[in-house]
Computed example of a mutant assay.
Amino acid sequence: MLSGFTMTSWRMRQYLLIITVWLGGIGTCMLFFQYNWSGCSFQTVPSDLAPVFRQSTTTSDTSPSTTPADSHPEKPILLVWVWPETDSFKFDPVECKRRHDIDGCFLTDDRDLYNRSDAVLFYHKGIKKDLSNLPQTPRPPFQRWIWFNLESPTNTRPKAGLENLFNLTLTYRRDSDISVRYEMTVRKRPFENIVIPKKDKLVCWFVSNTSPGTGAWARIQYYEELKKHIQVNIFGNMAGQRLKDEDYYPTMSSCKFYLSFENSIHKDYITEKFNGPITAGTVPVVLGPPRENYEQFAPGNSFIHVNDFPNASLLAQHLLQLDKDNEAYSHYFDWRKHISVVPHYSIWNEEFILPICQACDYISRHKEYKQVHDLFKWYSS
């Protein structure tokens, strides 16, 4: 009797173990397919459940004592999947703290931390057309993907399969989740005296891209007409030699006016071509979106818009008149008494540091889960 009872109990335990494993497998599959990985869509996971899912999907094959991210366990992880322009461009995360006083996340490009990353940053131009260099494993349900693009719609090539793939947008547009802007802030105390840098050139332009296929032809046409009426000092590849990084601001500050001509005209597309002269102490002459759009980012008396004049000839006459009237010219700097602006970095590729740092700051402050739909329809609107 004892032997039969033991055998029966053993079989019952065996059956119970099989049932437990089977039920556990179903639960695992339900969790695994909480979102649909089809290469282009997923379902919303409530943000209040994200911490639970994160804990359950954290990899255990890396020792906490040897994982760099564990030195900052309280900070969210931002994984840069593809560095902008080239993998040779990387920067030390301490630059976010040093330059922009941002220290809210753990910034890394270690793909082994993918399953633990709170957000993953994808630079649009770095994504292959067939999407083959995107993660090939399912996305952790708590994780957010960030679409990073600083090019205008004219210079952005849509890629099929990305339309409904992202949670957040990081672009120049004001209606992006993370909008890239060099700061303008109201001074606590107004400046009494504004020192305008010494000028020995009237009009300057730093330009390299003159290809008509990129949407830059409109600014070349305007320049060709303008130079018939006023001398324009050209620097950059158009002049046959690229300006050295260390000469960028000194040269720009020596010009009374700078041609801040964007390579294409779109809403909110106001780039470092405007920020550079503003911070260097030079008056920008802008060609881009309407004046009203510029005034959403900068004081109206800080720049001259080409649309303020019927043609390039009358614009040239205005600049020549200001060259002879120091008092009238100085009024373009009155705004500096009350507002300060942060300069962008002139070294090639360093303009990407600010947006990446801003993404870091965003994910440390915002935990809500979003979805982006019709990405390219929105971006071209």
Rank of each mutant, 00 (worst) to 15 (best):
K273G: 04
R54D: 09
M184Q: 12
K159Y: 01
F33I: 15
R336P: 00
D130W: 06
M238C: 12
L320A: 08
S253M: 08
A216Y: 00
H266D: 13
I356C: 04
L322K: 01
V180D: 00
K199N: 07
S346T: 14
Q231N: 13
K370V: 11
Y114L: 01
P277S: 11
E368L: 05
N326T: 08
Q55P: 02
K267P: 10
G215F: 00
T6E: 10
P290N: 10
W81K: 03
P343R: 08
Y223R: 09
E350I: 02
F352Q: 01
S302E: 04
V232Y: 09
M252G: 06
K227L: 05
Q34M: 14
T169D: 03
R139K: 15
G215V: 06
L17E: 09
L134V: 06
I77K: 05
T62G: 00
A119G: 10
W217T: 03
F257V: 01
T137G: 00
T8A: 14
K256E: 07
I278M: 14
H229K: 08
F33W: 15
Q43Y: 14
S179T: 11
Y269A: 02
S71M: 12
P158W: 04
C204N: 11
L226E: 04
S313I: 00
D48L: 14
L121D: 02
G39T: 13
P153Y: 04
S65N: 11
E225Q: 15
L150M: 15
K125D: 15
Q136T: 13
I220K: 10
I77M: 06
C40Q: 14
T251H: 12
L107K: 03
K367V: 07
I265N: 11
S71L: 15
F91E: 02
V45H: 11
S253G: 09
A218Q: 13
P343G: 03
I178C: 07
L287E: 02
Y269N: 02
D361Y: 10
N349I: 05
R365P: 02
T8V: 12
I77T: 03
P46D: 12
Q241R: 12
F142G: 04
P158Q: 07
L202G: 09
K125Q: 14
T57P: 00
R139H: 10
R173I: 01
I26W: 13
S253C: 09
D325V: 00
E163T: 00
K337E: 09
L315Y: 05
P158H: 08
S117H: 07
E192K: 14
N275K: 09
S179P: 03
L17I: 08
N167L: 08
T169A: 05
P93C: 10
D361S: 14
W83V: 04
F122K: 01
K273C: 02
H331R: 13
F142L: 07
I19V: 15
P46I: 06
S346Y: 07
P355N: 06
C357S: 05
E327S: 12
E151K: 02
Y332I: 03
F274Q: 04
A239K: 11
P76H: 11
N167H: 15
M1N: 11
N311V: 12
W145P: 03
W83E: 06
K273T: 03
K201H: 14
T57Y: 09
